[in-house]
Design a protein around this nucleic acid. Sequence first.
RNA 1: GGGCGCGUGGCCUAGCCAGGACAUGGCGGCAGCCUCCUAAGCUGCAAGUCGCGGGUUCGAAUCCCGCCGCGCCCGCCA
Length: 555
Amino acid sequence: MYPFEAFEEEIKERLSLIVKNIKLELPPEEIADMAFPCFSLAREWKKSPEEIANEIAEKIERGEYIERIEAVKGYVNFFIDSKKLANETIKSILKMKDKFGSYESNGIKIIVEHTSANPNGPLHVGRARNPIIGDTIARILKFGGYDVTTQYYVDDMGKQVAALFWGTKNLSIESKATKPDHKYVVYYQEATKLMEKNEKVKEEIEEIIMECERGNKELLEEIKKVYQPVLEGILASLKRLNISIDEFVEESKFVIDGSVYEVIEKLASMPQAGREGKAIYLMLDEFGIHGRNKKFYLTRSNGTSLYAARDIAYHIWKGERADIMINVLGEDHKLEAKQVEIALKLLKKKVPEAIFYSFVSLPEGRMSTRRGRVVYLDDLIEEALERAMKEVEKRGMAGEKAARIANAVAMGAIRYNIIKVSPDKAIVFKWEDALNFEGESAPFIQYAHARCSSILKKAEFEEKSSYEFEHPSEIRLIKTLAKFPYFVKKSISSRNPSLIANYAFQLASHFNAFYRDCRVIGSDKQNDRLALVKATKQVIKNSLNLLGIEALEEM
RNA sequence: GGGCGCGUGGCCUAGCCAGGACAUGGCGGCAGCCUCCUAAGCUGCAAGUCGCGGGUUCGAAUCCCGCCGCGCCCGCCA
């Protein structure tokens, strides 16, 4: 157990003798280390929260970690023995290193599905939110002891890919692009355009879709040859952001193995099922879905399956391979996710959790690949690199080292700026916000890490059995270090990766205050402070790791 | 028209689920800090009807109702 958790446990243990239903709060740091609000007890005890707090504060004994207890305005405030906390925390970090903040394997298997973009062209910035959220949550869950696999659901039989396929077979378009997703997207764009005004093209593309739904393996193989390079282009972009995906599951799998039809058959026998010709649907009004969308169609009138039906089969398959399923989805999938969830419940199958994110739009409106109103992820990456390179050069660095630093800064800035805001907020993309290298940004945190490295390079640190600190900036920094495992846990239970982003910023910020106030090299407390710097460097690194951002030795 | 989400200083944002301690922090603005471990840093100042109106409560940014604005969805598309 981590030192800060031991403090929390001690409080809970002591409180449990007096009250049940203990809910502790983390108060603002300058007020206390942990607080127990007494407001909810007021009714039951028929006393004011102030009186209750006083009463509880008097009854509670100090302990190994609890140094002081105070009743203030209806709160019982607990103060930690900061000497003990400091010593235990520093030693724990130096011993556990990259593992500090992590938890032992709990054997729970989680599949995180993210990105799953149609392989018909390059990722744009709007979609980039998906892999970054997905990859970060996966990293945090792994660190928290879960057995995590990431999955990309490849839609290999939809309209998008069919249009791409038709385009490459019937058109010949020059393209200067070398990256395959950019090279082939023009075929998709042109095919979509033709489909809109030419009935024959539309029919041909629809025929491709129908053939896929009938499970035509040869055709599916041929289509794969076309979309695979595009998919690889997408994955290459993700790789630059330090994102890789463990497994790829093709949608057609569930048509070929027949599981979609088993699912449809079972659902068709439910009392909620209805038919219009050969089209099968579920009536969802009893589940609170009303209006035009209460009919949830599973098949077409020609008997072929619809996307949503295949999605149900996919989730059943996935549910057999995981204890928990987490899907990262755009907010446009909310209704469909709800429908799939209802169907899975009717079938008494495991239901996935979903993390929805709002769209990233441009100041001039929604992104649209078709209308060319779009910023591609690759463009953002290139621009970020250029700007980072300028900053690096300003600081007199050059060559391979400069390139490496610029790359880490650029990729970090992109990831951080997306992950730091709550997924349900819509983002209007602006270059100056997306590529900010100051303030609440990845480079700010990377810079603090580089400062730690720089100090550690200048002096020899000697490991001891105990360390002492007393400056307020030292204590504040140590308390922040001690709370890292707490935030890992909280981030997992709330499925909110931005908590780690915010934590890393706080930590870097508190380190900067320490750096300002406490001289390390040459001070008579040099060795203790070196231990603190070493521990800080480690925890910044661990939190950056969770965000998929590189910790830099110098910049 | 119906459903879901969002609305916090000029701009962005935390807090909202589990109502209470002076509403968090960043960007931008203004004024400062490099004879001292990297100034991608630090300090100070100005700037807020927590969308609007009701309600519940001793107490509401937080819960409830209504309204307004914005986003997304409402296809036998994916």
